[in-house]
């Protein structure tokens, strides 16, 4: 009897905490949508910022898209290649364990430290200036370990029987990877890449140090142009804006950023769940 009461009490407590999580977690999404929808207009989405907090955010939207696309262009192939090596070629020895340890270390690295490194190495040492290129490469350092991890997991779920069947047909290891393993792992890899892109598009500290001030009035024209981005724009307007219109713009930009972020993570989760269901059958 006493145990049964205890069980009830514990259950009650758990309901409270989980209720708290359910209420707290979506609150920001709801808040951004509620306040941001009013800010969205064609002029806001296609115009340029002027006098600090007025105008539109077109260069910031394009800047974020450029940064993330370029970052994916660097990070995804490298990450997938690393994952192929780690899961298909590497035997468990000192070299691969070291590589794995460093990958984990990079995954846990604070983004501001990556930003500092980008600032020193890319911006000053390689003389890339604060630019689209420097920002995108720095972001790809941040994205790399996540892509590696997700791709490795996706490759490891591909049944060993597929590999055996292909090798027994006289295929080489690389032919087997290219024709059988990767096609089967693609959904999982895409999930990982999309989640990494979601991280990259919301990242502020790295682009702050390497890409540009955030209020650029022009869409970057070359790889060396300073590039504004939505997170930097939101940060600047939110902390230093003074007018109602500025606040409104910060909400609008937050909504746009959130929509882009959610588009990536929703499609990532969708692909993953769809794929898991298919593997299950």
């Amino acid at each position: 009897m006493k145990e049964a009461q205890k069980e009830k009490a514990v259950r009650g407590l758990l309901y409270v905490t989980v209720g708290l999580s359910i209420v707290i977690l979506p609150i920001i999404v709801v808040w951004v949508i509620a306040n941001g929808v009013g800010a969205i207009s064609l002029g806001f989405l296609t115009g340029r910022p002027y006098r600090f907090e007025y105008g539109g955010i077109f260069p910031q939207i394009m800047g974020s898209i450029y940064l993330v696309s370029l970052c994916t262009l660097f990070g995804a192939p490298l990450g997938i290649a690393s994952a192929i090596y780690l899961s298909e070629y590497a035997s468990d020895n000192v070299v691969t364990r070291t590589v794995r340890f460093f990958t984990e270390t990079l995954a846990g690295m604070p983004s501001i430290v990556i930003g500092l490194f980008g600032l020193e190495f890319l911006v000053y040492y390689l003389k890339l200036k604060t630019s689209l290129l420097a920002g995108a490469i720095s972001l790809s350092f941040m994205m790399l370990p996540w892509t590696i991890r997700a791709s490795e997991e996706a490759i490891n779920v591909v049944p060993k029987e597929y590999r055996e069947a292909s090798l027994a047909m006289g295929a080489t290891k690389w032919q087997t990877i290219l024709r059988v393993v990767l096609p089967a792992a693609i959904p999982g890899i895409m999930t990982g890449v999309l989640l990494g892109m979601g991280k990259a598009i919301g990242e502020t500290a790295v682009v702050w140090l390497t890409a540009g001030s955030g209020l650029e009035a022009f869409v970057p024209r070359t790889l060396k142009s300073p590039t504004g981005s939505l997170p930097m724009y939101i940060y600047l307007i939110a902390t230093q804006g003074h007018t109602a219109e500025g606040l409104q713009n910060a909400f609008g930009a937050s909504l746009v950023l959130l929509v882009m972020f959610l588009a990536m993570s929703v499609s990532a989760l969708f692909i993953r769940n769809h794929y898991l269901r298919r593997l299950g059958s």
């Binding site: 049944p159 029987e161 597929y162 055996e164 069947a165 292909s166 090798l167 027994a168 047909m169 006289g170 295929a171 024709r179 059988v180 096609p183 089967a184």
Partner: peptide
């Protein structure tokens, strides 16, 4: 060598492709 020796495994292990592509693989 493996081209001249065909192998069939314990568990049916077709590739996750169409029937045609499975046979056309080799």
């Amino acid at each position: 060598l493996r081209k001249t020796v065909g192998m069939v495994f314990q568990k049916p292990n077709p590739f996750p492709m169409s029937i045609y592509d499975n046979i056309a693989y080799g």
